[in-house]
């Protein structure tokens, strides 16, 4: 019984971690970036201000061109300051770029 419980807890926490990585990756997971401070701020805006009305949406579940349409609308909904809007826009951009370049890179084992 104890074992089942432990396994359950472990898997929940693993799933939990995986989630926070893929919904809105931490800056360290984006590879080398030049504007880490700004991206940190963008991520903070994304996971708090952008989850006021709905849960934070997995950034890579939306294509770049869809984001171009949705993001300005959502920034307006959120009544963000100009600097927060810029930070969150850069962060989303960086996540999309990182995932695009990861997809473009052939895996090393091949």
């Amino acid at each position: 019984m104890k074992r089942i419980l432990l396994t359950l807890m472990a898997s929940i926490s693993i799933i939990g971690c995986m989630d926070s990585i893929s919904v809105a990756p931490k800056i360290a997971e984006l590879g080398t970036v030049s504007n880490a401070m700004q991206l940190e701020r963008g991520r903070a805006v994304y996971i708090t201000s952008c989850s006021r009305c709905h849960n934070a949406i997995r950034i890579t579940s939306i294509t770049k061109s869809e984001w171009d349409g949705i993001l300005p609308e959502m920034i307006e909904e959120s009544e963000l300051t100009i600097s927060d809007s810029m930070a969150v826009t850069e962060y989303i951009q960086a996540v999309l770029n990182a995932s695009a370049s990861a997809a473009a890179q052939p895996s090393k084992s091949e």
Binding site: R52, C53, E76, E77, S78, E79
Partner: peptide, 20 residues
């Protein structure tokens, strides 16, 4: 004017978000 909803998803349970 445009505004921030603080919608409640559960009528019997409160959530921790407050209004702006």
């Amino acid at each position: 004017s445009p505004c921030i909803a603080t919608s409640r998803t559960s009528p019997w349970v409160y959530h921790s978000r407050t209004m702006m």
